[in-house]
Simulated assay, not measured.
Amino acid sequence: MLQVQQVFKEINGRQILKDINFSIEDGGSLAIVGESGSGKSTLAQLIMALKQPTSGQIIFNGRNLPSKGIKSYKAWYRDIQIIFQNTASTLNPSMSLFQCLEEPLINFTNLNRTERKNRILEYLGKVGLREDLLRNRPGKLSGGQYQRACLAKALMMNPKLLICDEVVSNLDIVLQQQMIELLMSIQKEQGLSLLFITHDLSLVPGLCTDILVMKDGKKVEQFNTTDLHHERERDAYTITLLKSTEMLETAWKKYL
């Protein structure tokens, strides 16, 4: 499905990514975990062809990362969708929610208006949003509703791979859990491949089968999620991330 091979990325003379290698099989799920500044989001932008690697290869379903040509980019974007960390810029604030969701269907599919409306209603239901919200502008949605709308927008394209870049970091702990459960349900239902990018290891078990840990633009280690708590096998940096997560969970419980 997705192969990332010896990828390097340099920006303004600074090495952001250094020899990144991993793959995701059809229907597979991988979490990329690391602190802010570890290169996670840059890697997501490369996979989405929003930036080009300095060297290395990104291959999806046998196709190389597009570097030119509208048709090749359109085909890439149909198959790979992303939900960004900063979702506030995902939906056009001057449009209604219906128009925001319809726009990619106009640009990337041949569906007529009735078919587009039916697709929108179908995925609105999948993410648990009411139909009457379609008349509202995005700014009137709650944080949780906005995030679900962004998920619906991505899923409507029937992608083969969904990239989630810190999609729950701005939500409270209850909404985080709801969003994770929704992603688990949809991935199972649609057979999606999932790349879940986060700094919080507590969000990964149950959602992803494998974990890749990054630090300073480098791959620290990769392992099966079931081995997360096998501390003797884990890198010291991974253990630090894990213990930081456990401390936050303990602090949260005091307020629940």
Score class of each variant (00 low, 15 high):
L141Q: 09
L111T: 13
Q99V: 07
G125F: 05
I59Q: 15
Q85K: 02
Y146P: 00
L129S: 14
G69E: 05
N112P: 10
N92C: 12
D79F: 00
A49M: 00
D132L: 07
Q85G: 02
M156R: 01
G56H: 10
D79L: 08
L129T: 10
N110D: 15
L46I: 02
A75C: 12
L129A: 15
Q57N: 15
N110C: 11
I70L: 14
I58F: 00
I106S: 04
L97Y: 03
I120V: 13
P104Y: 04
I120E: 00
I47F: 05
I70H: 14
K71M: 04
K153S: 07
L133C: 08
S96M: 04
T109Q: 00
C100T: 04
L50S: 01
P66H: 00
N136F: 13
V127E: 08
Q145R: 02
N64S: 01
G128M: 09
N112L: 04
G144P: 09
K68S: 13
L121E: 13
P53Q: 05
T54Y: 05
L134Q: 13
A88I: 06
N136C: 12
S67T: 15
L151R: 05
P53E: 07
Q81W: 01
D132K: 11
Q81K: 12
L46N: 06
G125T: 07
N136Q: 15
I47G: 03
G144A: 10
I47E: 00
Q45Y: 06
N110T: 15
E131A: 13
Q145P: 11
G125L: 07
L50M: 11
S142H: 06
K68Y: 14
T87G: 14
G143P: 03
N136P: 05
N61W: 04
S72G: 14
F84W: 09
